[in-house]
Amino acid sequence: MTERNTLSVDETLAALRAVGEATRIRLIALLAQNELTVKDATAILGQSQPRISRHLKLLAEADVIQRFPEGSWVYYRLSDGPEGALARDVVARISNEDAVLAADQERFQTIRKAKAEEAAAFFAGRALTWDRERSLHVLEADVEAAMRNALGDAPFQTFLDLGTGTGRLLEVFADQYVSALGVDASHDMLSVARANLSKAGLNNAQVRHGDVYALNVPPKSFDVVAIHQVLHFLDDPARALAEAARALRPGGRLLIVDFAPHELEFLRDRHAHRRLGFASEQMERWLDALDLDLEKTTDLVPGEADDSKLTVTLWLARDRRIITDVPAQNSSREVA
């Protein structure tokens, strides 16, 4: 299906009418850089919540912006369609020296800084727990390097990170994707991720509150889907894999990172693990049932022979729908 990237005359006029108002221009200028809530916009523009909500509603009705409910909050962002592109073009032609927009930006940066400090405080509160778990396996930098090696250097269009946490993978693969979405069930984690993405300047990556068992994304819409250290927290990993497979475009790739089978029972009580690792035979059965071919398996084994250390395994699978005339290749297994 070809994505819509042009507008009719009537659609263009509707988008211009929606944008053509002082408050809405200010909102568009802010949304061109980051997503906002009504509370954010109210604080920055100094207008009442009903007034801001009305302007956002008009912009949303014209498809200039999109709204993303997240619990009791709603986040707004410029749309990915031609209406959003038109709005970006309008903003790009406004002088950087405009006093009103400059003041809005200054207030926006103050709010961004406050959120970053709040997110950092949350992360620091969890750091001891997470550092304890990280110390049980190879360095995270080695895991990230293995993930990049598994996917290769070729660019791809769309990237979906399930259980995105702090949004780290959105940063790791930022030089390869055109657009990316991270999904997580934790509002606190999403606050951390948003702060990290803002700090890194990744305007082409978003994060959303969501359920890995019931993804609110179109089917067949992502070239690469990653599930990094998530499955061991789930009661039903196979169901999450099915949702991930549903989101893959034909020929798309699914990259799973998790622990190999282990016997560290304390991880159930202290770190909320539901599964003590996954055998590759089980993973391959799950993937095959979803019409995914396991192309590569990589084990990252701790350097020292210690039963208290965990092996991290990477599984790379490909949706088989696109390839029907090429003989299936035997999957390979690497040990690093």
Rank of each mutant, 00 (worst) to 15 (best):
4 R>I: 11
6 T>I: 04
8 S>L: 05
8 S>A: 05
8 S>K: 01
12 T>P: 05
12 T>D: 09
13 L>T: 09
15 A>C: 06
16 L>G: 04
36 L>G: 00
44 I>V: 07
46 G>S: 03
48 S>E: 02
48 S>V: 07
51 R>I: 14
52 I>R: 00
54 R>P: 09
55 H>S: 13
60 A>Y: 00
62 A>C: 02
63 D>Y: 10
70 E>D: 10
74 V>G: 06
77 R>M: 02
82 P>H: 08
83 E>C: 04
87 A>S: 00
92 A>F: 01
105 Q>I: 15
105 Q>D: 15
110 T>F: 12
110 T>P: 14
117 E>A: 14
117 E>I: 13
121 A>Q: 00
121 A>S: 10
122 F>P: 12
123 F>L: 13
127 A>W: 04
130 W>K: 09
134 R>Q: 14
135 S>T: 09
135 S>I: 02
137 H>V: 06
137 H>E: 04
139 L>G: 12
140 E>P: 08
141 A>I: 11
145 A>S: 06
145 A>K: 02
147 M>L: 11
148 R>M: 10
152 G>N: 00
157 Q>F: 07
162 L>A: 08
166 T>Q: 10
169 L>R: 02
171 E>L: 08
174 A>P: 08
175 D>T: 02
182 G>M: 09
186 S>H: 01
188 D>V: 06
198 S>P: 14
198 S>R: 13
204 N>H: 15
205 A>N: 03
208 R>E: 06
214 A>P: 04
215 L>Q: 00
215 L>F: 00
217 V>E: 06
222 F>S: 14
234 L>Q: 04
237 P>G: 06
238 A>Q: 00
246 R>V: 12
250 P>Y: 04
251 G>T: 01
254 L>G: 07
260 A>T: 10
261 P>H: 11
262 H>L: 03
264 L>D: 05
268 R>I: 02
268 R>H: 08
271 H>N: 11
277 G>H: 01
278 F>L: 03
280 S>V: 15
281 E>M: 05
282 Q>I: 11
283 M>G: 00
288 D>S: 15
292 L>K: 03
304 E>I: 10
313 T>A: 01
315 W>A: 02
315 W>I: 02
318 R>W: 10
320 R>Q: 13
323 I>R: 07
328 A>C: 09
328 A>L: 14
330 N>S: 13
330 N>F: 13
331 S>Q: 14
